[in-house]
Nucleic acid binder design. Sequence first.
DNA 1: CGGATTATTTTGATTAGTCAAAATAACTGT
DNA 2: ACAGTTATTTTGACTAATCAAAATAATCCG
Lengths: 220, 220
Amino acid sequence: MATIAVENYLKRILLLSEGGEEVVPMGALAAALEVVPGTATAMAKALAGEGLLEHQPRIGVRLTARGRRLALNVLRKHRLVETFLVETLKMDWAEVHAEAERLEHAVSDEVLDRIDALLGHPRLDPHGDPIPSRHGRLDSQVYATLATCATGRRLRIVRVTQQSADFLRFAEESGLRPGTELRVDERNLTSGLVILRRNDDSTLALGVAAAGSILVEPRA
Amino acid sequence: MATIAVENYLKRILLLSEGGEEVVPMGALAAALEVVPGTATAMAKALAGEGLLEHQPRIGVRLTARGRRLALNVLRKHRLVETFLVETLKMDWAEVHAEAERLEHAVSDEVLDRIDALLGHPRLDPHGDPIPSRHGRLDSQVYATLATCATGRRLRIVRVTQQSADFLRFAEESGLRPGTELRVDERNLTSGLVILRRNDDSTLALGVAAAGSILVEPRA
DNA sequence: CGGATTATTTTGATTAGTCAAAATAACTGT
DNA sequence: ACAGTTATTTTGACTAATCAAAATAATCCG
């Protein structure tokens, strides 16, 4: 059985590699997992030995089919658990990430299937992140962000990447949830400011970094 | 934070010591945790250093107040999770023990409180085991068992200790659940046999060991 | 009492995961 | 092209948890 650390490495590589296809450099992986680079290298070699990823020395790692399958299963657990915590236990979406980070390693496939059924087989978690299917299909549509989309157009928020509790609390208070409609009034890359306008005509300023973590689609 | 291993040691000591009061010998502890005795000794010394238990060399261990508090919290998680799995997710009571064994270490106090509320603050888990209160009170009434009670009297099953899936499946099929009413027709300690009679007059034979894990009270 | 049995502790190794810091390779820009 | 910077790997050490097997203490009985 994969240990918790192994599951975390695989999941993180999946998230850093646009669905497991791209090569992830060791530095990025180590930083994301908050370990020193040498630790990531050591683990990469071990996981390569297990056939869960390919390690191209001095370049990075890429998941094998088996590694990807495992990683998707962990991600599915994470996102379904988050959905469960919000929908069933009525927790705040800012808190659920940390909880799911532990629960994803303790929930069996059996329990997960029942949670999935209880929730009515959701396809998106509370942040709008797609939930991988039981058999490893992951909807990874590429969306524009508030930092990159055209200004002036009517938009709908589809997803809020960035899981920090602080940011999510701020987003909640500011009405920036999946489903919210708005548009970008103005964007100034020099000052790093993005000005949003809500449907009620109120405005809100955001830094580009924050704006980049909010994915949007043109309003239908 | 206590590691998973530490939580398991504390919980096991609690269960082996009638609520944390009695001294548990190392052999019993090691056997229950399926580790070699030396391992249990090593851990006992470490936990004594942490102030979670007292280690009386060559005698055994006893929980301190702090150790007991921690152990009760783990046990509360275990039993509430089991209840949740049966009540909310409709799992079979034979499966839930193994699941709870992992989940008890991943569920936060926050999530637990919400599960507790969702279930309506149950006092017993699906096996009839008492659920410790949030502040560490544990109802530990002493019951007779089918191996020790008087024969002939009308009884009600209150609790099924013994968590193995095999046994629980058998109990389920035989109608031996908490709440079931029956009596002991006959008990032969030489042959090790206990003969039960259900309310519909059907009978069932059980070994004394199995009978000892079914707790009963006189029918009201 | 004292030898045999049984329980417990000690000692020495092992594994997984980690860090610190030295060594090495690759890339960058003039 | 080469010196400097940056990224990666290697090496050596540490911690938590475990096992195997030797050493030691306690208990039981004839």
